[in-house]
């Protein structure tokens, strides 16, 4: 057997679903006095699942709290069977979880839509934690004119959600998430515009106004300041209040360093 063939065979056996058997391990592994070939393979098999399930649980604490231990574990196993790791780093393990859930919300049972939004928020958190930081523009640079095309900080993620996933994540972190109360309005569905961003090494969630979100989205697409401000922006309809609101938004973004060169 060539090396590549052995490794395909052994990887399939190591990564096989938990509680399934791996027939024929003795064709390539030897037993010892205490363990059969299959027993020896299973040391790696168990370690594989322990390591990867732990990694997902660490990155998606709110989703785990929402679904409960057993359901989250089952969801994770199904996800990993469908989307095995294709990155050298475990940091990327959950990168496809949101799209995998979106493809079939039933995978998260009765919490489908909420589970998807939590997965999106928690993956954005992972990305914001270690994404690059570019030099932010100061207020003088921002005043240079409508042709300026600021770049959004790479560690800023913008989410438009139907559930207050930020509140739910914080509740989960504090151990105060009560699943049975979710359906009676403690975290009501609606429209939530959330910025997941990093400041001084920590990741924060900031609620945005609809127009603020809309404007940041335009800048994210690469439009200039002038182009971004053209057309209707929610919350800026009143010509008397629009300038001050706009100033407030830009001041906050400048303080947080969201607009870079």
């Amino acid at each position: 057997m060539r090396l590549i063939e052995l490794q395909r065979r052994m990887a399939a056996d190591v990564m096989r679903p938990l509680s399934s058997r791996a027939p024929g391990v003795s064709t390539y592994l030897t037993p010892n006095t205490l363990l059969t070939a299959a027993d020896r393979l299973d040391i790696y098999h168990r370690q594989y699942w322990l390591r990867l399930l732990d990694a997902l649980a660490e990155d998606f604490p709110a989703l785990r709290a929402l679904l409960g231990e057993r359901a989250f574990s089952n969801l994770s196993k199904a996800y990993l069977a469908s989307c095995p790791s294709k990155s050298f780093t475990l940091r990327d393990l959950g990168s496809k979880l949101p799209s995998w859930l979106k493809a079939d919300l039933g995978r998260a049972g009765k919490y489908g839509a909420l589970a998807l939004e939590l997965a999106r928020l928690e993956w954005a958190h992972v990305e914001a934690f270690d994404a690059a930081w570019i030099p932010p523009l100061d207020s003088a640079a921002l005043a240079s004119g409508p042709d300026l095309r600021p770049t959004l900080q790479p560690c800023l993620r913008l989410l438009e959600l139907s559930h207050p996933a930020d509140e739910i994540r914080l509740a989960a972190n504090q151990g105060t998430l009560r699943r049975e109360k979710l359906s009676v309005g403690t975290h009501p569905a609606g429209k939530y515009f959330i910025a997941v961003h990093r400041l001084d090494g920590d990741v924060f969630y900031r609620r945005l106004e609809a127009g603020e979100f809309q404007l940041l989205r335009r800048l994210e697409r690469g439009l200039s300041l002038g182009e971004s401000l053209a057309g209707r922006i929610r919350g800026l309809n009143d010509p008397e209040t629009a300038p001050s609101k706009l100033r407030t938004w830009f001041e906050a973004w400048t303080v947080l360093g969201w607009l870079g060169e």
Binding site: Y48, L52, K86, S87
Partner: peptide, 17 residues
Amino acid sequence: CWGSVDGKYTHDLLPIP
């Protein structure tokens, strides 16, 4: 050691024959 094959990663330190 080895730990990946055909672009899939086990994230383990598997012994080499």
